[in-house]
Design a protein around this nucleic acid. Structure first.
Lengths: 231, 231
DNA sequence: CATTTAATCTGACTTAAGTCAAGGAAAACT
DNA sequence: AGTTTTCCTTGACTTAAGTCAGATTAAATG
């Protein structure tokens, strides 16, 4: 156990999915769920594994991906802390339809399927929360889908950068920036391209004086142009 | 009113979402929902319209689409009968994030947001049903996303054709076939390409003796090859 | 049924982005 | 610190699929 029980309960509170549960329920959840820690690049589960439950990322970074018949992997979700992943098959039956692997050392909360479904039957409030969460993800997947088919790589990269800047909270600085904590190859796959093309696109945006790259940091010189590209 | 009330209630029963509701609840739903009929090519709602509720297609065909900033439309959902659409914003707030338009003369059941949410609070079984439905769609969107980024047009078309053949129930015939009820332009957009490319791809599959096209009917000559292409 | 309108096809051309191959840079690991 | 491994970049080339323009066919409508 890497964090103590009280800390865990207050962390569970921060998870949108569980934000409105009573102390009682939080205790219950923490009683049947397990903290699991993973090293960098460790596999959490493989596509096709027997489904036993879902995870909430507490700390670190995780990629959720599908592997095509030709072995090419495409990342469908870059998980950030306090977000659930692999919760879809809870209601679908079957095995894990995707694989998950850490991008850095990570801490997760594992929630076993059966116990959780029991709880959800008793506590309908949770299902409404989950519906809201699923709705949000459906919407974002639909957007991703539309972007992928109607926009080019520079547009998709711009959109990704803007999202990251919003998360970083540096949006209103004279030079908003982000620090990449994941390899560029993961970004490439996530926005639906390959590393070579991504590398060239980064260069292109630099040539156009829209961004400035310094190691793992990307500074936005011209936010207006970036937003223009993204929409 | 184009179908009588009893017929309507038994139709509602066939909708997966409502399949396990009591007569009481079915009556309730049919009391506050409205049958709306639409002509061919009629707009049901536009992207950005104020959200008032969702629809269930009873008869006909509907496309759900997003329009990019450059005016290019991409179809995110080809709705077939007994399927709900525009139900995502129920839990998300905001306006309609997509537009919907009929592809042929259609009959829908309109279910107003507020009334439905009231019902769902009282009847938690519905939310579990909806969760299952959302989970299924999330999974299918993830698959679409993966296909779009890892596969080429012929592969995507093959996959689409196979899905339609499964629906048509002719899978085990010596020559499985489907009858296109929607314009090819809709298929093109749905699989993420344009009509010209789709036309050439159809030709390619014909040259390779995988399919045979006769008007609006597509016959599969070589199912094995088609499946090979799709995976 | 004739004529307007919409859908589909075909060809010539362009282009974004993928593949292949090779060097460099940065990180991780004794 | 030095070496191995992973990550990133660059160049030359190829290709799938998009754009543009025009022709053909099918469908809708008076």
């Amino acid at each position: 156990m890497l964090i103590d029980d009280d800390k865990l309960k207050s962390t569970i509170r921060d998870i949108p999915l569980f934000s409105e549960l009573s102390i009682e329920h939080l205790r219950k959840i923490s009683s049947f769920s397990k903290i699991k820690s993973f090293k960098k690049h460790e596999i959490i589960f493989n596509e096709g594994d027997f489904y036993v439950g879902f995870y909430i990322l507490l700390k670190g970074g995780v990629k959720v991906f599908k592997t095509s018949s030709k072995g090419k992997e495409s990342i469908v979700h870059l998980v950030s802390p306090l977000t659930a992943f692999a919760d879809i098959p809870l209601f679908e039956g079957g095995n894990y339809p995707v694989g998950a692997q850490t991008l850095e050392e990570s801490l997760t909360l594992f929630i076993p399927k059966e116990k959780f479904l029991e709880l959800i039957y008793k506590e309908p409030g949770i299902s409404l929360k989950m519906l809201a969460g699923f709705a949000k993800r459906l919407k974002s997947l639909i957007n991703q889908l539309e972007d992928l088919s109607s926009k080019e790589v520079p547009n998709r990269l711009a959109k990704y950068l803007l999202k990251e800047i919003r998360i970083s909270g540096t949006e209103n600085l004279p030079e908003p920036f982000i620090k990449l904590s994941i390899p560029k190859s993961a970004i490439a796959s996530y926005i639906g391209t390959i590393t070579e093309t991504l590398s060239r696109t980064f260069k292109k945006l630099q040539d156009e004086k829209i961004i400035r790259v310094s190691g793992k940091r990307i500074f936005v010189i011209d936010l207006k142009k970036l937003k223009e590209l993204a929409k």
